[in-house]
């Protein structure tokens, strides 16, 4: 992810390679009626929802852990993380396994929508507006057709889930 953010400056002889470096790819998915996207470089795999083993005394949005071929992976409910209530997960729900700062975790979403190839220059900053979702999670806005997809900052979403546990337990 980091390397795709270090965009090279455009020289006078920018060839096709440079143009390719300026485009970024995202996976977009749906939570409720909203479309979100995350950097495709972070995605390790996408799988259907299966029952998790619940970890005791955690935040609501922490759904428990899954066995991913011998690795224990924590699963988070994105809807709940946004403060929009728990997802009643079914087999049709999807878990996106991502790697953030060397850790694997799963994001429960309603459905995966698309793979977006976006010109880096087209990513807009997040306007400072009142909305249910904390601005810190948002990395930008990608215009798609008439609508828009909200680009999420995974680091900010899950940077602090550790201390939050203790806050709940205490």
């Amino acid at each position: 992810m980091a390397e795709s953010q270090d965009l090279p400056s455009i020289g006078p002889n920018s060839g096709p390679d440079i143009a390719a470096a300026l485009t970024r790819q995202f996976i977009s998915f749906r939570v409720g009626d909203d479309e979100f996207a995350i950097d495709i470089m972070a995605v390790r795999e996408i799988k259907g929802w299966t029952e998790t083993t619940v970890l005791p005394n955690q935040q609501d949005y922490m759904l428990g852990v899954l066995n991913l071929r011998g690795t224990i992976v924590p699963i988070f409910d994105l809807r709940c993380r946004f403060g929009l209530g728990l997802t009643t997960a079914t087999r049709s729900h999807v878990v996106i396994i991502v790697a953030i700062s060397g850790r694997l975790l799963g994001l429960l979403v309603d459905a995966v929508s698309d793979i977006l190839t976006v010109n880096a220059a087209d990513i807009r900053p997040v306007p400072d507006v009142d909305q249910p979702i904390d601005n810190a999670f948002l990395a930008g806005i990608i215009p798609v057709g008439d609508g828009m997809v909200v680009l999420l900052s995974l680091e900010n979403l899950f940077a602090n889930h550790g201390p939050a546990n203790t806050a709940v337990a205490a």
């Binding site: 224990i72 850790r103 694997l104 975790l105």
Partner: peptide
């Protein structure tokens, strides 16, 4: 558990049972 998550009070680790569940 701590490879991918934070320590959970009261839980020292995890294992995978015969049915594949944690």
């Amino acid at each position: 558990l701590q490879d991918n998550y934070d320590p959970v009070p009261g839980i020292s680790g995890a294992t995978i049972l015969g049915n594949g569940r944690v």
